[in-house]
Design a protein around this nucleic acid. Sequence first.
DNA 1: ATGAAAGCGCTAACAA
DNA 2: TTGTTAGCGCTTTCAT
Lengths: 334, 334
Amino acid sequence: MKQPTIYDVAKEAGVAISTVSKVLNNTGSIGEKTRKKVEETMHKLNYQPSVVASVKKRIQTIGLLIPDIADPFMAEITRTIEDHGRKFGFSLIICSTDNDLEKEMEYVSILKKKYIDGIIIATGLKNTGALNEILNNEIPVALLSREVPSLAVNTVVVNDFLGAFKATTYLIKLGHQRIAMITEDIYFPVTISRLDGYKQALEQAGIPYNENLVAINNTSFNDALDSTEKLLKFSEPPTAIFASTEPLAIGAMQGVRESGLDIPKDISIVGFDNSILAKMCYPPLTTVSQPIYEMGKKVIELLVEEIKNPKQVKQRIVMSPDLIVRGTASEVNN
Amino acid sequence: MKQPTIYDVAKEAGVAISTVSKVLNNTGSIGEKTRKKVEETMHKLNYQPSVVASVKKRIQTIGLLIPDIADPFMAEITRTIEDHGRKFGFSLIICSTDNDLEKEMEYVSILKKKYIDGIIIATGLKNTGALNEILNNEIPVALLSREVPSLAVNTVVVNDFLGAFKATTYLIKLGHQRIAMITEDIYFPVTISRLDGYKQALEQAGIPYNENLVAINNTSFNDALDSTEKLLKFSEPPTAIFASTEPLAIGAMQGVRESGLDIPKDISIVGFDNSILAKMCYPPLTTVSQPIYEMGKKVIELLVEEIKNPKQVKQRIVMSPDLIVRGTASEVNN
DNA sequence: ATGAAAGCGCTAACAA
DNA sequence: TTGTTAGCGCTTTCAT
């Protein structure tokens, strides 16, 4: 049983294909009777218009470039983007880039060939090559959690600086003075902002910045575990750790435990993201929460607007993170 | 700067479009010089063939129906499917159905319109309506973690029965007699198999099956938390819990803690899946591991084979789960 | 209000 | 080896 085409419908209904096309798209003018007849026939044949057939149109699909769909935070945001996209009739193609420039370029090239309608980029972008490539091609792009100040693109970001500032300040208020930071590869703008927020909070409290307390990892939580163990072996070990990501925070928690210490009695920890991991670990993680739902909703909305009206003026939306106090941070006890 | 078409390339290179098409697809025969020339021109114009233009071809994309991309286990499997799919030139459209029949049908209908090349179904399927709809339409389908015995479809499953059997038997060997099971909605074949494995293990050990020890939840871990607290209030509470899913296992762990008990000293817990959650929780979860990588790799391989050769004989592959011993189960202490 | 016909970018059968 | 041409399913003028 083949998919019926517009021709089948036209023949069955005894009209021209253009007539069918018109009722399909609600264009031109058609008589009430004809419309009824055509609609009935479409129903009868269970006709599904092909999205790809009309070459000028695109395929009602958007591409999502993220570092890794297996990262819980990314997966959650993907879900909200998927849900809102569906409301507008768009499907989602996922592209995990591992923040690797080559994969990024490869995916962009694939997406272009497929005539997708737009792209959401929530990936590394050390280099903006991929981005330029897309923008040249007049395909709508929205940025999520990434900034390219030099470009006029719809952008949704969270205030990373503020989030880190809040987290660090909170630890300081609890009496901590030696606060370590565990962060991923330092070249990403997001990471840099979080580091800056941490520094700023220290400075404002008159605590000197100590480079040795900043551990730079890749994104794996095993790395964070190792870094933490090293930090705790210092002659003057930190009493608190701010991790710039939740997998890193979990790694830090395990590192603390392997060192035979207790959370939060001996070491306080604050994370960043508020993904499912923060709720599921034990004790539940005190963390900086990104408004996942709102962020996902907003990017896809901006992108869809741009798809419908490319001339639309571009926006840059900065959302505020909140500190969620749970069980991993407490007052210093020494 | 518009995307150049095959016509632009042909004109620029001074050949016919069919010639360009031929070098593109490596069909027919073309002279060495012409090929060179055409290839150069394509490069020069930065030509990207449109995947949608040729209506007969499909768009090198497969649809993935899963309950929820935000579930870490699903996200991980999605990642391996994505990676292997890319090797074959296929992109992935994700469709989170929440195991909801309506959403399932809606997604299937959308995917059909988009002329995707195949579908992987790893979702509820209480009703096989959606499946029949697809199969009627001659579009290749592969099943992951789902069975529809009445249909000849490529299928990759893990031996759920065996997994549950191993988990339960392990607990019994540790001396546990009152072993509770926390499971999701009982109507899914997967769930039923896991329940059966649990029962079988009890029976084999001569432990009577006690219905009161089986708590049926939805998929949320908060539910599991509540269920666990209730179980622990029994006059003869269980000493061990087998959770049929990792979010449920985590919920159980929190329930145990909220009841003021220790894991694994007072209560042992075994989960199912071996997702990132199992490694990240504390203590790390003793769990039944599904071969995520192999499963993902195999389904996409089967599906791609079928896409290339629809007549291919269908396979059903059953993979064996393994028990991964970590820190949440120990001998009974009473 | 309806229909005929010209594309959209590409593939494939057929001619040259 | 290369080019011509007829579709693929649909949208969109432009006539009728």
